[in-house]
Amino acid sequence: MVYGLFLVSGLAVGSLYALGGIGLVILRNSTGVLNFAYGAIAAFSAMFAWQVTDWGLPGVISWISAVCIGILLSVAYGRLIAPSLAWREPAVKAIATLGYMLILLGLIGFIWEDALRRIDLPSDKIGLSLLGVRVTLTRIIAFVVSIAVVIGMVQYLRRSNMGLNMRALADNRDHAALLGIPIVRTETIAWGISGALAGFTGLIFGSLVRLEPTVITFMVIPAVAAAICGRLTSLPLTLAGGLFIGVAESMLTLYKPAAPLRTMAPFLIAALVIIWMQRGQKLTFAKEV
């Protein structure tokens, strides 16, 4: 029974990691950028949603605004900064996003003074009991959306022209350009989708965990671990990785000596996955994707 409690709790947190990881993988699949600013974009979006509510506007506007701000911040980087790094190594592209993360974190601190804040969603009040744990509708939404996004994006990438363009870019940016694929448009859409997911994740995270910009920003770390479980390419494996990390982290709580160290779980799992999946194969950062 007690394992059931922690399993359900872990799945709820894992779905947040998975959501973050999925947003990272979608972007990297089409642009080659591992976006470490993903968490900061999520944090900015969540803070903006709170601000909109604080202005007295209806909740639905604040939720939509979170997604819109996520898109705006993500596309801004994708259009203004990322193109000048398009031909650099993947590691350089990833490190550049760390700079964007620090800029956003600084902006958040400048705009919003440190204070107690909270985002309440109507779905927080609705829930059901599962294996002894009350699971709110917000957590169910996070779980369902993460699965729906994986299914939707897999289909989108397989069946739509834009999906084909994204896959072509992911395979070889030079060849895609020579074939006449609209690179800027394709990448802008990828940045937009990733930003929308960051905005949504920030909103849910701010409600379920806590509305603290730093905590939301560094949510990108377990999200990257989830993405690594999917080898930065596979959405279904990223989903599975995120859920597994969440459950492992939760279950470690039951073993008291390991409980204070359970935040290491994402790194350990990611490291083990890298070692396992890269047996004699290509290195993740070895070449341009």
Partner: peptide, 13 residues
């Protein structure tokens, strides 16, 4: 951990 996300597990512990 100060950045722990799964406060639910802390509560359940």
């Amino acid at each position: 951990d100060p950045t722990a996300v799964d406060l639910n597990s802390v509560y359940l512990q």
